[in-house]
Simulated assay, not measured.
Amino acid sequence: MSDISRIHLLHAAMVVALVICWFVLPVYHAGNLARIMVFAIYAMGYNLLFGYTGLLSLGHALFFGAGMYGLGLAMHLGGVFAGPGILAGLITALVVSGVVGFLALRTSGVAFMIVTLMFAQAGYLTVLLFGTYTRGDEGFVLPQATRALMGIDLSDAQNRYFAALILFGIVLFFIGWLVRTPFGRCLVAIRENEERARMLGYDITRHKLIAVILSGTISGLSGAAYCLLFGSAQAAFAAVPYSIFPLLYVLLGGMGTTIGPFVGTLFMFYLIDWSGGNMMVAGVVLVALALFAPTGILGEIRRRFTPWLP
């Protein structure tokens, strides 16, 4: 069996396993898994920029929040239905990521990291400033009656779970395809040696900008999905800590792997849950990971046992 066939089989098996999980897991864990899949989409978007392109961003909460408030405000104030609301969230995230990418890519290294952090903080303050519309720290709730897509009530636990699964599967297969295209290979080349990639004739700035836009749009899709599926938009999701979480998810699961973001999200979610929200426990685990598994869970498995792992 070729490596590509193995990769397709692995991704399909993962989706099938998640389908089975709905029927065998207790209600509490099935509900958690729906959230985990949505946040894993966020982590996959982040991984495209950090894990594959090598650009460390601390501002992805801006994109998540753009998608969340793009959909939320369109439905809450504009009265649009869920379908156009998702489109509004995607367009908002795309425009914001395009502007941020165009400006932030004038810098590099630590400066890029700081600039993205500043943009994220500016986005969070904007949400608070326009509290008349966003309800500031309190946020707002979408009425249950509006959370339907093509006649399917997404406030229902089963419908919500499978909507999250379908979206997760689409993004998983898309990224699995993208990173094997010439564009995806060029992103990896930029990560490994930017100067050599430039000498080979690649337009580095254009590839980075597209990577920022794709990463931000996927992260915005996650934010829009969260708002629609769980029915609320809150300023906390646009705050700086939510720019750190996808970094932790990717580092735990394995940067530059297609399923690592899901594994890292799952691990981190339950680590925080079982520790009662004590981030010190998470910090100890991250230190141990840096010492004994520096490439993350999937990264170590790929390095030691299965080099074909995507």
Rank of each mutant, 00 (worst) to 15 (best):
I152Q: 00
A197H: 03
N159Y: 01
I175W: 05
G85S: 07
G54L: 11
D153P: 06
G169V: 07
S108R: 15
V96C: 11
G176Q: 03
L62N: 13
R106F: 04
L172W: 00
S155R: 14
Y133L: 10
E138F: 13
I175D: 03
S155T: 15
L128Q: 14
N193W: 07
L154G: 01
L125H: 15
I175Q: 12
Y124R: 08
A88V: 10
V127R: 11
V110Q: 13
L73T: 00
A148H: 13
A148Y: 05
G98C: 10
R191A: 11
L56F: 15
G101M: 01
M75L: 03
F119Y: 04
T53F: 01
Y52F: 15
V96D: 02
S108A: 12
W177A: 15
Y52H: 14
T92H: 08
A88H: 01
A111P: 03
A93E: 07
R106M: 01
E195K: 13
G72K: 02
R180Q: 15
I114K: 11
L105S: 00
L117R: 08
A93K: 07
E192A: 13
F174T: 14
L94E: 07
G78H: 07
G59E: 10
L129N: 12
R196F: 13
G131C: 01
L149R: 00
P84Q: 05
L149Q: 03
T107Y: 08
P84T: 02
A82G: 02
W177E: 11
L129T: 15
G67F: 07
G67H: 08
Q144P: 10
E195T: 14
F174H: 00
E194K: 15
G139T: 01
T181G: 03
M68I: 04
G51H: 08
F112L: 10
S108H: 14
V115N: 02
Y124N: 09
G78Q: 06
A61S: 15
L165F: 06
R106S: 00
I175N: 06
F63D: 02
L71N: 05
L87P: 00
F119S: 09
I166W: 09
G54F: 10
L167R: 06
L117V: 10
L105N: 03
Y69W: 12
Y161R: 03
A104K: 03
D153H: 00
T134R: 08
L58S: 11
G54C: 13
V95S: 03
D153I: 06
L71P: 01
V95Y: 02
V95T: 02
L62G: 05
G78D: 05
Y69E: 13
G109F: 09
V99R: 02
M75H: 01
R185Y: 06
I86P: 05
F119R: 06
G109I: 09
L58V: 12
M68L: 12
